[in-house]
């Protein structure tokens, strides 16, 4: 499926794609929600070890497309997709690709923190347990600790690992969800407006964390906030009415967009 990628769009390829390998890519993707044509003929290349941000007005399809990247749309009966999405060149919608396995490679963090009604430890141990990643209890404990550390949460919760995860503050809960996602060693982490339910301080903390995580992961973040996209991402894709209008280096999108619609959006004409 990894046909020599045709040029994404007429403007020059984002600089960043030149020095980073492709992690995920979409070619000619169309998504329908019942009668609604939510994504129209979309193609994009997402680089590894970088943060790609999807921005656009509400209802532009950015979350729908994000959910297509780990086949979360499979859970919605009325949702149909055509076209190809690849992970390391492999089509993730191939009949012999199990979404269960795919999702252990492509993790996801949601808009509202959704820790399970279990202890902090059990929340993080959930993934390793179901995927059978740890042979022993000690190994599991170590992995939980590491994941919590990577999510920058360990220091705050190390004394109450066995208390319910729902008792944490909103920002801590979201970091717990990030720790939960990285506990299964994914390659890609999808974040669907991860800070929209958080206060500014918690948001700053998460943004810092995202910046750290990009050393090891391919991160795709959907955000409502253009400032956030500008702060955390290296690549920005602007969605409008189901189409990918513009995609390029973040600094370029925000300083010199080529498309009028992007220009209008970032200057606050609509959105």
């Amino acid at each position: 499926m990894n046909d020599a990628s045709p040029p994404l769009m007429k403007p020059p390829l984002p600089r960043i794609l030149a020095d980073r390998p492709e992690k995920m890519a979409a070619r000619g993707v169309n998504i329908h929600y019942g009668d609604k044509h939510a994504i129209k003929d979309l193609s994009i290349t997402i680089p590894d070890r970088a943060v790609s941000a999807f921005i656009g007005p509400s209802g532009c399809g950015k979350s729908t497309f994000l959910r297509a990247l780990n086949r979360m749309n499979d859970t919605i009966p009325s949702c149909r997709m055509t076209g190809a999405i690849t992970l390391d060149g492999r089509n993730i919608n191939d009949p012999d690709v199990d979404p269960v396995q795919l999702r252990s490679h492509v993790g996801m963090v949601f808009q509202k923190p959704n820790p399970f009604p279990k202890s902090i430890f059990e929340n993080v141990a959930y993934g390793p347990r179901i995927h059978g990643l740890c042979a022993s209890k000690a190994e599991l404990e170590q992995r939980v600790e590491e994941s919590l550390k990577k999510a920058g949460l360990f220091g705050e919760v190390k004394d109450r690992l066995h208390q319910p995860g729902t008792g944490l503050s909103g920002g801590q809960q979201q970091r717990l969800c990030i720790a939960r996602a990285i506990a299964v060693n994914p390659e890609v982490i999808l974040m669907d407006e991860p800070c929209s339910a958080l206060d500014p301080i918690a948001t700053a903390r998460i943004e810092e964390l995202i910046d750290e995580l990009r050393q090891n992961f391919c991160i795709v973040i959907v955000t409502h906030s253009m400032q956030q996209a500008a702060r955390v991402s290296q690549l920005t894709a602007f969605f409008h009415l189901g189409t990918l209008v513009e995609f390029g280096d973040t600094d370029k999108i925000f300083t010199a967009p080529t498309d009028q619609r992007t220009q209008d959006y970032i200057t606050g004409r609509y959105g």
Binding site: L87, D88, R90, V97, D98, I130, G132, E187
Partner: peptide
């Protein structure tokens, strides 16, 4: 490197 196609036994058991 991802191993999306590897049908490992754990996965088979979980599917069953």
């Amino acid at each position: 490197m991802s191993s999306l196609n590897a049908q490992n036994p754990t996965l088979r058991r979980r599917r069953a």
